[in-house]
Amino acid sequence: MLQEFADWLTYSIFGLARESQLGAAANFFIYDSIKVTLLLAIIVFFVGIVRTFITPEKVRKWLGGRSEGAGNVLAALLGVPTPFCSCSAVPLFIGFVEAGVPLGITFSFLIASPLINEVAATMLFAMFGWEIAALYIASGLVIAIAAGMVIGRLGLESEVEDFVYKIKAKKMAENKMGWKQRAGFGLSESKSITLKVLPYLLLGIAIGGLIHGYAPADFLASIAGKNNPLAVPIAVLVGIPLYSNAAGMVPIVGVLISKGMATGTALAFMMSVIGLSLPEMIILRKVLKPKLLAAFALVLFISFTLTGYLFNAVLG
């Protein structure tokens, strides 16, 4: 049905010839954009409803005083549906530490929350199939769990800014919600997130289409293909300070792969772009002393690089 609609729009409304290259490209662009947008709107709606049950306030309660291992696993899992923007990272961090959530477990949550997000997962699923989407989610979880445990073991509690430990927070009444409100929240999330990522998504697909059409297919194969072992760490290093919307990243990853970048290298690059950024590090500096912040970035750099190598080996 969707294909028929895209056909009708391209060939009848825009009057493009069925056999022409432009017609095929426009048809592909229209079909892909509509498919991904619809899928996003639906998935974000359901994730929105889940979010009304798994709020950061509840997560903090569930994680307080947990032991290493089980606590890190739980924190990473809960980090997946929990909303995250870099501006709420600091209040969240303070709130967790203040409630007695161990440092390593707090980091497992802080890593999983932006790294594994429903927009990226949906788009990977729509553009590359479920295997890549599942691989992305699973590896994101493993990274969040392992990196959190490593940071927890470094014993850097004294590298948290002192004021964090001195804050005495007031008790706050919890928001109560009925099913009608939960559905309303899901709808408003679906609307606002889909609209927010739509320009990035269209731009990403359009740039993807352009590069796809004009750059030779083995453009990146010699510098970022499987035979260059340095490609993974360099891609991750470039990606860490960069910030981009996940919706714009996925189509670009698609292009990188189609132009010869190894799949694992491209995925590691994507994870380093959405998992950590310079603006986020600057804001986290308010609560983390330089040593802990550097440890955080370094542990993530190593994790993303290892994941890239692993994917390159597994995906062949």
Binding site: P56, P83, C87, P91, L92, F163, I167, K168, K286
Partner: peptide, 13 residues
């Protein structure tokens, strides 16, 4: 100010 925000018990802004 993050300290002030946290003092209200708010962890999601």
């Amino acid at each position: 100010d993050f300290g002030e925000i946290a003092a209200y018990g708010v962890i999601s802004t």
